[in-house]
Design a protein around this nucleic acid. Structure first.
Length: 616
DNA sequence: TCTTATCCTG
DNA sequence: CAGGATAAGA
């Protein structure tokens, strides 16, 4: 505190990647119209609210402003937990939109009078490029994915430059009037997801080694090419040892291989015809994902059913001791050591390594599925435990729904009993609508419900959400839901979860403002002098807020995000924008719309045990 | 009208 | 962190 933000300024060396000295930081984000509008609106507000309890003369557009298109609804396309995307998706999701011309238009250029829209375009384009470059440059360490991204980046840039040229002058008038929103729509950032392909590639028991990189199979043809053989051999190896599941696994893998081939072929075709690679890719991905998921599910289900039936028959007919039929195949995905790291030692500002490998979620699904089915099938075996849990439930919530008492909560292990700190987290939400007959899905409010999942978000979930914030600042509700599989979501708890993230952002931005002002006060003269590293004061503040016990190692990219945010705030403040009514709005908007700064959330967040690990 | 997102207050 | 007010997109 005393020394302000020394670390931030630490290296006052404008690193090479930041050659780009002068893009008018927000000029394009602050069209004069908006300001005019602001003054109008605010005056209205103040006049009307001046009297009594003050109608909170709000900053006019403020509140919901940055809200950008319906993330949620659009994203529902990918909603089914098997989300799509690739390593590069966060950065480039926006250009998947076919409507190229609009793409480059940044939201705020609603200027109907815009005589120089082209210039703005160029600016914007420049901005995007610049940021991409920066980000990429700074996360050099990130392996192969990096290269792919570069490739794509190049393509992206070139294509867009062409487009820009083509578009030339004509397009000033017609769409410049279309609401900024519609333009933004084309941006619609849609990330989410983790590559299923990968998961399977790595699904082999030898997690540690197995071809980490492969993951990105889908982005380029070559990569898929490379991956294929590896996968095949790995799979074959698998097939060799597979005794119990040999059959099922064979089918399973066969399906997978088929998918891969499909993918490959498609990729080649795509290459040949050079047509909108992006689109094809995404479509392809979706398709593969779907079919693959289906196949997997089916195969696994089959196998489980078989195993279960086997088990049952074996029970009936006294046979050889056949204790645990389904071998605990892939239990330790994480070599005990560390799903949860600790902060890296302060000294390397740009630690290599990258974040955790996005592996093993197939296993989760698998195990979960297995569990579920077993639960269902051998329900009588579980009755006892169910009863126990019910008792618990009754204790914690006097008004526990008498419904579905027989339902077994296999979630016991997901959901550590002590976390039932109902007071102040769940129950009271409903006080307000005791009468309302509208509660359709309420029965689950106070605890477990048929499926065994609870609808109550606990402090553990909060912790987890905070950690997720390290990766994504603007998650949509579907993404969130997919990362809380143990929660049975209804309107209330989804809203709560979303609200959490809103609060997280609030804190985040407040810190940004604070430190930006500090930086300014310390005499920093240019945004490029602002640096954030993992031992920066600001970063520490954030870390203690979101990752108090260092449950995870902060993602490397986070520092970039923070730095970029901080710089934006710095610029805005430096230029006196902060006197304007809703000056932060534009920054929010920027980070929301261009939220390619969001990272992918590692898959281990979906681990059922993840919550438990957070307890310590 | 429903959603999403912010601001503000407690 | 939750609730309410509020704004704006769809």
């Amino acid at each position: 505190m005393s020394s302000g933000l020394p670390p931030i300024l630490a290296a006052a060396q404008p690193t090479a990647n930041f050659n780009f000295s002068g893009f008018p930081p927000f000029g394009y984000l602050f069209p004069s119209q908006i300001q005019a509008g602001n003054s109008n609106g605010s005056s209205q507000n103040s006049s009307s609210g001046r009297g009594f309890k003050v109608k909170r003369h709000r900053q006019r557009v403020d509140a919901g402003e940055p809200r950008n298109t319906y993330q949620g609804t659009t994203s529902t396309s990918t909603s089914s937990n098997t989300s799509t995307s690739s390593a590069t998706s966060t950065s480039f999701s926006k250009k998947t939109s076919p409507s190229t011309p609009e793409e480059m238009e940044l939201p705020t250029t609603t200027t109907s009078t815009s005589s120089s829209s082209i210039e703005q375009e160029n600016l914007n384009h420049h901005l995007l490029d610049e940021e991409n470059e920066e980000i990429e440059a700074m996360k050099v360490e990130n392996d192969v994915a990096q290269e792919e991204q570069d490739e794509i980046d190049a393509e992206y840039n070139s294509t867009h430059k062409e487009e820009l040229d083509e578009m030339g002058e004509e397009r000033t008038s017609p769409d410049s009037n279309s609401s900024s929103a519609s333009k933004r729509k084309s941006f619609l950032p849609q990330k989410i997801g983790e590559e299923l392909g990968i998961d399977f590639g790595e699904e082999t028991e030898q997690i540690n080694v197995s071809v980490g990189g492969n993951t990105t199979d889908d982005t380029t043809e070559e990569s898929t090419d490379d991956v294929e053989p590896k996968d095949l051999s790995a799979l074959q190896a698998q097939l060799q040892n597979g005794n119990h599941l040999a059959d099922q696994q064979r089918r399973f893998y066969a399906a997978f291989i088929e998918q891969q081939k499909k993918q490959l072929m498609a990729a080649q075709m795509m290459q040949a015809s050079k047509i909108n690679i992006e689109n094809l890719l995404s479509a392809l991905r979706g398709e593969v994902m779907n079919t693959f998921a289906k196949n997997m599910e089916k195969v696994v289900k089959d196998w489980i059913a078989e195993e279960v039936s086997k088990q049952e028959t074996s029970v009936v007919a006294p046979q050889v001791p056949q204790p645990p039929p389904p071998p605990p195949p892939f239990h330790h995905i994480f070599p005990a050591a560390n799903p949860l790291f600790h902060m890296v030692p302060p000294h390397h500002p740009m630690p290599g390594g990258g974040i955790f490998p996005p592996n093993f979620n197939a296993f989760n699904a698998f195990n979960a599925l297995r569990r579920n089915l077993q639960d269902a099938d051998s329900s009588d075996v579980k009755r006892k435990r169910a009863k126990l849990d019910i008792k618990k439930e009754e204790i914690t919530s006097s008004r526990a729904s008498p419904l579905s008492p027989s339902a077994s909560p296999p979630l016991g292990r997901f959901f550590p009993a002590p976390t039932m700190v109902g007071h102040h987290y769940g129950g009271m939400n409903f006080g307000d609508r005791e009468d309302s007959p509208t509660n359709s899905d309420e029965l689950s409010d106070c605890g477990y419900e048929g499926n065994g999942s609870s609808s109550m978000l606990t402090p553990m979930h909060l912790r987890k959400a905070k950690l997720m914030f390290f990766y994504t600042r603007y998650p949509n509700s579907n993404l969130l839901k997919s990362y809380f599989p143990d929660i049975r979501f209804n309107k209330n708890n989804t809203a709560q979860l979303v609200k959490w993230f809103s609060n997280f952002r609030e804190f985040y931005y407040i810190q940004m403002e604070k430190f930006a002002r500090q930086a300014l006060a310390e005499g920093i003269t240019d945004r490029s002098e602002i640096f954030v590293s993992k031992d920066s004061e600001l970063f520490k503040v954030l870390n203690t807020h979101y990752n108090r016990n260092n449950h995870i190692k902060a993602p490397d990219r986070l520092v970039l995000v923070v730095q970029e945010t901080l710089r934006e705030f710095y610029d805005a403040i430096k230029q006196g924008k902060d006197v304007e009514p809703s000056w932060k709005k534009t920054i929010y908007k920027k980070f929301q719309i261009i939220n390619r700064l969001d990272d992918q959330i590692p898959d281990f967040f979906k681990e059922p045990n993840f919550l438990e690990r957070l307890e310590t």
